[in-house]
Amino acid sequence: MRLGLNLGYWQRHPNDATDLVLAAERLGYDSVWTAEAYGSDAFTPLAWYGARTSRIKLGTSVAQLSARPPVTTAMTAMTLDHLTGGRLLLGVGASGPQVVEGWYGQPFARPLARTREYVEIMRRVWRREEPVTSDGPHYPLPLPGGLGKPLRLITHPLRPDIPVYLGAEGPKNVALATEVAQGWLPLFTFPSKIEEMYGDALAARGPDFDIAAMVMVVISDDVRAALDGVKLMLTLYIGGMGARHRNFHADIMGRMGYAEAAERIQALYLAGRKGEAFQAIPDELADGIALVGPPERIKERLELWRASPVTSLLVMGPRDEEQLAVIRDLVLG
């Protein structure tokens, strides 16, 4: 199992995690990942860390499709891949209607079809086999009826096959990842339920397909406090990171077997009763998707992850080199 560090996106204040990234590289972590929502972007911090490291792979988890046309993401990825010696892992995802429509002012129609079209255009850009055209309905190139003509990427990519990962939560999107991408980035993973939830969707994956699961890790002798930290995060995602009638994070909790709890959590949160929403998060849900407690407890619960189809653990939450070392020894030792 490979080990990565997921830094996420900045919260209220900027967070230069260079020292943590350098420590992860020294300790043998395979990758470091950044994200974006509607604050810091995914690529700028990654370039910053790439300039200060030499070996660790650099991933976006994820870059939002609606933030950039596919050719812009392809150009950015090609540039960063060159500057870092071929270390980029490009994770992309459709996000959700709240962000896409509320922040980017774009429609959230047909996310699977848009994702397929987006990835195919990026691959055409990197291959440089011919000027890029696309007759798809979402990203037509050149623009129909305009003065543009098909163009070819000026710069030759370092790698014409930059690895693409999809951030996906629904079974159809996961199946699409096995078809068009090199990996899948699940945000919430209940390791003992992956086969039940996604067995059919993952059936067509190749032997090198990477399931890179994000997992919150809290090393603490106070298991109660550690679980509460996970529940606080879940309260926001289930309750507030989505529209009232379309919340993919709440949907995935339902597929894990917590549909009634997810519905209640969202209703309480949207009613302004956030404390009650927090209390409604089942402990077993928080414990199932995270690794919390003293090292010996985490080591025991890691066996569930080793028995699952997960091939990379992208840990969220370590604060310093000491914690990174403990996690490294538990996962890789």
Rank of each mutant, 00 (worst) to 15 (best):
P70T: 09
L90N: 02
G102K: 14
T73V: 11
Q98C: 10
G105E: 09
P69G: 02
L80I: 15
I56A: 03
G102R: 12
T73F: 03
L65E: 03
G91H: 11
L58I: 08
G91R: 06
I56N: 01
S61M: 15
S66Q: 12
R87N: 08
L83H: 08
Q106Y: 11
G86N: 08
S61K: 01
A67F: 11
P70H: 04
H82T: 05
P107N: 13
T60Y: 06
W103I: 15
A67T: 01
A51H: 01
L80W: 01
S61Y: 10
A63D: 01
G86K: 08
T60D: 00
Y104E: 13
R55E: 12
I56E: 01
A63T: 10
T79R: 09
Q106M: 15
V71G: 02
S95F: 03
P70Q: 10
G59I: 06
K57C: 08
H82G: 02
W103S: 12
V62T: 03
S54Y: 04
S95E: 05
R87F: 09
R87E: 09
G96P: 00
T60W: 08
K57V: 06
M75G: 09
T76L: 15
W103R: 15
G96E: 06
L58W: 04
L90R: 13
V99G: 03
Q98R: 14
L83I: 13
A74C: 04
S54G: 13
A94V: 08
T84P: 05
G91E: 02
V92K: 05
G96Y: 11
P97W: 05
Y104M: 15
P97C: 10
R68N: 05
G86H: 10
L65S: 00
A74W: 02
E101H: 07
A74N: 08
L90A: 02
A109K: 14
H82Y: 09
E101T: 15
A63F: 09
Y104W: 15
E101Q: 14
A51Q: 00
S95I: 04
R87K: 13
T84L: 11
T79P: 02
V62K: 00
G93S: 10
M78Q: 15
E101I: 09
L83D: 02
T79L: 09
M78A: 15
L65M: 14
T53D: 01
V62I: 14
Q64I: 15
V62Q: 00
G59Y: 08
L83N: 00
Y104D: 05
P107H: 06
V92S: 09
T76E: 13
T60G: 06
G102L: 11
G59E: 06
L90M: 11
Q98G: 03
T53F: 02
M75A: 14
A51E: 02
A67V: 00
T79H: 14
P69N: 13
G105D: 06
W103M: 14
A63N: 02
P70V: 08
G93W: 05
G85L: 09
A74D: 07
V100K: 10
K57P: 00
H82M: 11
V62P: 01
G93M: 09
Q106D: 10
V92P: 00
I56H: 10
T76F: 12
T76R: 07
L58G: 01
G105Q: 10
T76H: 07
L89S: 00
W103T: 15
T72R: 05
S54T: 15
G102T: 03
S61I: 13
T53V: 12
